[in-house]
Nucleic acid binder design. Structure first.
Lengths: 396, 396
DNA sequence: CGTCTTTGTCCACTGAGTGGAGAAAGTGGG
DNA sequence: CCCACTTTCTCCACTCAGTGGACAAAGACG
């Protein structure tokens, strides 16, 4: 199939494309109910979408008791590639134009191997998805990387955990390799977009997404759009001081949140506890696996291990303290907790909630849900697809 | 003079009004250079503004070497009232349509006396300004109050330092009393608007304004617009924990920034230092004045008093620590420090800068100016005028 | 005094969008 | 089965904001 190169010619068409993306197949009449255009105008714009191939007619619509109407849907052959590059693994997924995941692969990987090696792997994963018959090509791709990005250019800037990526033209390079438009963003921002599109944040306009993985980051959504800050580093909360004169951090300061609680810090703490004999559960896991990770702590906690539970609670308190500050400052309508450490589940959530509800003022917390993300590991790739579709479904 | 009741009929007129407000008198041709409209269309819209009396012709424009052009300016009879209600004083000012201050009064007052008493005072101050010939009436008024506001309705919600104001229909009541449209906002947001309109933040789109007065608050500007949060309490950073297990705060928690550094806290600390004999300078000032305020500490510091300097430095450190967190999170393009405590000047600023530059990541601080506000006590009233003018200069 | 430039005015034309008339295609009651 | 009613689609004349070119007015400059 030849890839789509058409773009909406005006704001009306862009609007319609987004409605079709978010609401699935719709009849002309249903579309008309949502866009406030005269039927004539609507018909013209829909016809143009059909002509350009962006949308197609698709059978009869459910009857509402009158002349039968044909459904319009986005071209079912459209394919987006969503790539979520984490610190230690990559997710690659294919979606259709409605951003439904058709295929999803996750592989371990180390970002520090540099962009060339990583992209080789990403491309081979994309090729595998294509080979399995899910796509004959991609109409666009969204990429998330674990560090700040100069968004307009799609270039990582001074990323702490991925040296070697600084200034690498990710967008340019991938666009070349894949032969389609590419957008690049911070992984946390994409997670926020994902939860906004298909997760818990569908109806909220101002919210925060805190991702606790190898590091800690925060996606900020203001007025329905991702806020990236002046230099693209907004949401970089891992290096907010959580403990005065606390542990030394890789960034050179002491007491950073990330140094006290994150996937990496948690694994270190667990190892120490196991070695010092403070937890039989963790020690036995260490012996079995040869190493400990956040997942081991989660399992130990689930098994009722007191030390593991303490580690989670203490980390939750620290995180909650920082989030409480952000809540006072930002007054969001929702806080979403996500990332690899989400496996710690409700113990973690309870600790965070306790801190936030205790430390922030009632006006800010009164109606503030603090919840776990709904999409788990797919949030990033859905957000990536959403990013590129937002771009492609806007007037050129 | 009869008050203006006209409003711009469309977005073009609104745009023109704002250009005239921000750029002063302009010829039709100069306006044309800025709005990207055909000369014909521009002429039509300008004529309508002249017809409705919102703008007037005003002499000949400076020649650019061709047919001479008449200047257009906003009606010089338009008057806005800016009111900035602080915890312990009120500022009331009259501006013209270009938001230049024509008259400004400041009086001490206690917000806790409640809205009725305060408004009585505000109205009498407004009457005094009117009586002095500066205005025959007001075309609109902006009001800032020291607490969170449900912005669309112009009603304070759960304001900690002004009990008795909760739910009071400020906008409604003042609109009745003054006989003109009124908009209400948090005082810090107005300060941000003021610095954006006429101060240090004219060219920045994302910035923070930290106001250190009786309490501590923060104005947040995102994409050129004030961000108010879900319930209007965004920027309420006074109750972020700055010192773990620190001083008890009126809010019920311990270690809040406001409990450790603010006009009120500083005065308490100074009093203690004077009574304990740790500062001869402060003690003598206490004896002379009978009480101590932030201004006394500023004076003592200027005189070289070590204890006063320490108080300022320690407060600056605390504040800087909190701001460092906000900078990491928000990645602003500028941080403005303002409020009553600004008198502490560069000692304070240096302490804050040190903390922020040390604790936040280079990417966020690399090009981040941290400066004192430019407008001092007029920032609030200018922001108030700006608020109502933005409202009135938008299509109805 | 004539030429060039800037500014203001007029007007025919374009193109997006509207809203009503009517046809097409369904539902449901008698 | 027929008829009244509803929903959907299509067509078309009409409105209206806005454009851009022609021309006039008014100055600068050599």
């Amino acid at each position: 199939m030849r890839r789509m190169t058409a773009r909406p010619a005006n704001a009306h068409q862009a609007r319609l494309l987004k409605l079709l993306r978010d609401g699935g197949p719709n009849s002309r009449a249903q579309l008309g109910d949502q866009v406030d255009l005269s039927r004539s105008k609507l018909a013209v714009e829909v016809d143009r979408l059909l002509e350009t191939g962006l949308a197609v007619a698709d059978g009869l619509a459910a009857s509402r008791g009158g002349r039968r109407s044909h459904n319009i849907r986005l071209n079912p052959g459209l394919r987006f590639l969503g790539v979520d590059i984490g610190a230690t693994s990559v997710d690659v997924a294919v979606t259709n134009a409605e951003l439904e995941i058709l295929g999803h692969i996750n592989q371990p990987m180390d970002v520090r191997e540099g962009p060339v090696a990583v992209f080789e792997q990403v491309l081979s994963m994309a090729a595998k998805l294509r080979a399995s018959g899910l796509a004959e090509g991609f109409d666009g791709a969204g990429i998330g990387v674990p560090g700040p990005v100069r968004f307009p250019e799609g270039v990582p800037v001074a990323p702490p955990i991925m040296p070697g990526w600084d200034g690498f033209p990710v967008r340019e390079a991938l666009s070349q390799d894949l032969g389609c438009p590419v957008m690049v963003d911070n992984d946390v921002n994409l997670m926020a977009l994902g939860e906004q599109h298909a997760g818990v944040a569908r109806t909220v306009h101002d919210f925060l997404v805190v991702k606790i993985g190898t590091g800690i980051g925060c996606g900020i959504v203001v007025g329905g759009g991702v806020y990236r800050g002046t230099t693209g580093s907004a949401g970089d909360i891992g290096h907010i001081q959580a403990v005065p004169e606390g542990r030394p951090c890789a960034c050179g300061n002491r007491g950073c949140l990330e140094a006290h609680f994150s996937g990496a810090a948690l694994a270190r703490d667990a190892l120490e506890a196991a070695q010092q004999g403070r937890s039989a559960e963790l020690a036995s896991r260490l012996e079995t696996g040869g190493a400990l990770s956040a997942a081991d702590v989660a399992a130990a906690a689930a098994a009722g291990d007191a030390t593991a539970l303490d580690l989670i609670r203490e980390g939750g308190n620290r995180t909650g303290q920082v989030i409480a500050g952000l809540v006072s400052f930002f007054n969001p309508g929702l806080v979403v907790i996500g990332g690899g450490v989400t496996g710690l589940g409700h113990t973690l959530l309870a600790a965070i909630r306790t801190q936030v509800y205790r430390q922030s003022l009632p006006l800010a917390t009164g109606n503030l849900p603090i919840v776990l993300g709904e999409l788990g590991p797919t949030a990033g790739v859905i957000g990536a697809a959403r990013l590129i579709s937002d771009h492609l479904f806007s007037p050129a």
